[in-house]
Simulated scan of single mutants.
Amino acid sequence: MLRSDPLPGALVVLTVMTGMLDAISYLGLGKVFLAMMTGNAIFLGLSISGVTGFSTLRVLLAFACFATGIVLGTRAGRVAERRARRHWFFHAMAVELLVLAVATGLAFLVPAAGTPARTVVIALLALAMGARCATVRRLAVPDLPVTVGLTGTLIALVQDSPLTGGADALALRKAGVVLAMPLGAALGGLLMTAFGLGWSLLAALGLVLLVTAGVWWHPAGPARRG
């Protein structure tokens, strides 16, 4: 499957990056997620109830920018879907790389927490994650939601497993998706502890760059098939 289509493997690796980014944002940008909006809904409720350490403004900003990214990603996908999906996936990732690079640069230039530049970093990264989720949803690769419906993947994995009398041919892929998010979160936590925000975001940027290059140079990718 991976030899004929680079996207399933690429999306699993991007799920690792999503876990990294949400761990980095929680630890370095003030208890807010950039991709996992379910978690932000919980944070919003805690903030409204008066629990200290959570910001209504940051969470609402993440929601708004994530939704804006979905709009932009969906519109771009409709324009580009006339081409092979590996082409418009590559172009979507190239745009994401640009946005991540700007956000990472800001994190290095303004390292102090609580500054307006950190708010811009949240906005840019949530925008990028929203656009990515829209792209992945349109790709419709089975059981690879990246950030949308991870709980559903876990339910499908268990429900279709031998424990319930099922025989799931995609069980390995589903398990990979379920494990990728906590693996990424662990990496993000280690990076934040050792190196701080800027270098952690640079590592996430590097991972996306590797995925994008891998899709481009894959035997079934745009560079080989045109």
Results as ranks from 00 to 15, higher is better:
Ser25Phe: 08
Arg86Leu: 04
Leu11Phe: 06
Met181Pro: 01
Leu60Phe: 13
Pro162Ala: 05
Cys133Glu: 11
Cys65Glu: 08
Ala92Ser: 14
Cys133Gly: 03
Gly189Gln: 08
Val102Ser: 11
Val32Phe: 04
Leu201Lys: 02
Val141Asp: 09
Pro142Phe: 15
Val146Glu: 07
Glu96Ile: 03
Phe195Thr: 10
Pro142Asp: 15
Met93His: 10
Leu187Gly: 03
Val12Asn: 14
Leu172Trp: 13
Ala84Ser: 08
Val120Arg: 06
Arg132Gly: 07
Gly130Asp: 11
Val121His: 00
Ala186Tyr: 00
Phe63Gly: 07
Val102Asp: 06
Phe54Ala: 11
Leu154Trp: 04
Leu7Phe: 05
Ala103Glu: 02
Ser49Gln: 12
Ala134His: 01
Leu97Ile: 07
Leu7Met: 02
Phe108Val: 06
Phe63Trp: 14
Leu34Arg: 09
Thr193Gly: 02
Arg58Asn: 11
Val148Leu: 13
Val136Pro: 05
Gly77Asp: 05
Ala223His: 14
Asp5Val: 09
Gly9Lys: 07
Pro116Thr: 09
Ala92Leu: 04
Gly196Asn: 06
Val158Arg: 02
Arg137Glu: 08
Cys65Arg: 00
Ala84Arg: 12
Leu21Thr: 07
Ala134Met: 02
Val59Phe: 07
Val59Pro: 10
Ala185Thr: 02
Leu172Phe: 10
Pro145Ala: 11
Thr212Pro: 04
Ala123Tyr: 02
Ala134Val: 00
Ala67Thr: 12
Arg224His: 15
Ala101Ile: 01
Ile48Cys: 12
Asp5Glu: 14
Leu11Ala: 06
His87Met: 01
Glu96Trp: 02
Leu100Ile: 04
Arg224Met: 14
Gly206Ala: 08
Leu172Thr: 09
Met181His: 12
Ala126Trp: 13
Phe54His: 12
Leu106Tyr: 00
Arg173Trp: 11
Val208Glu: 04
Thr193Glu: 11
Ala131Ile: 00
Phe108Gln: 02
Arg82Gly: 01
His218Asp: 08
Leu125Glu: 07
Ala171Tyr: 07
Leu139Ala: 08
Val136Leu: 10
Met20Phe: 09
